[in-house]
Amino acid sequence: MEEKSLLEVKDLTVKFFTDDGVVTAVDRVSFDIKRGETLGMVGESGCGKSVTSLAIMRLLPSPPARITSGKILFEGEDLLQKSEAEMRRIRGNRISMIFQEPMTSLNPVFTVGRQISEAIMLHQKLSGKEAVERAVEMLRLVGIPNPEKRYHEYPHQMSGGMRQRVMIAMALSCNPKLLIADEPTTALDVTIQAQILDLMNRLKDRVGMSVLLITHDLGVVAETARRVVVMYAGQVVEEASCEDLFENPLHPYTAGLLKSIPRLEGEKGRLNVIEGSVPNPLNLPPGCRFNPRCPEAADICRKKSPALLEMGNGRRVRCFSRGSPPEEV
């Protein structure tokens, strides 16, 4: 039974043309998101997660950014072929996004309620009064106590957790098909993070939307995603169902990452480490991008790049020692 994909990203490449040189922030990245599912995207900072999500929203700063290859099919239509006017009708309506720091995406001079009701009026044929009612209802839905009163507050009058709720209320106010959440809880405390993740999960089921959840926290992925894409230095290095990934990680990077997290259970003692650090995107190592840090690196890894190998069952991995062929150049 093949489920229909809501979003298909195919062979996406994004380059930044900077004074220091060309940075390939996203390098031939492909993945898809099914209807109603949550796809997790994990990787260390700078690996291209945010650039991927901004590319989908067509919000990349250009210049310096340029999409040099690929398609982004949303309900079968290529977003990269849309005009800016068409994109404006899609953004905040059929696709919406929440960011790590809600303050950057909320306007400090308007009340939160007004920002939500204006977003609603922009996309839906509702009267002003109906939009206000809907905004209050959304604030209530995301668990903001006393929503009629809170409607009239400004973003700075709210705590970080409350602001993130407002962002979610705004993002969901037009019943989007796809929600892109880029590190939505990274700036929040754990108890507030638990509230927000719980809220996102419940609302997702209720409105039947798909979610692209971007995070560097493997715990958050494990608790919310159904499938996971692991990125490293601009490339997809592994994809698996959540259970497979955590039970049996195939890529040495994923395996190393999982072992380096301090566990709540388990003994004290030295943590496993991945030596070194993420390569400079202007100066990538030859061959497999992970080879300078990889405990399994062999000669071929320093000479050729492994291709992403399809293993069936939605599993993909990019590693010679797991059977990837060399990439053709």
Binding site: T191, A194, L197, D198, G219, E223, C242
Partner: peptide, 23 residues
């Protein structure tokens, strides 16, 4: 509550969360 809120990187383990109300 603090301990129960920590996301655990083990999808098969489902712990009961104690969700605190408000801030």
């Amino acid at each position: 509550a603090l301990i129960s809120a920590i996301p655990i990187p083990e999808p098969k383990v489902r712990r009961r969360k104690i969700l605190l109300e408000e801030d």
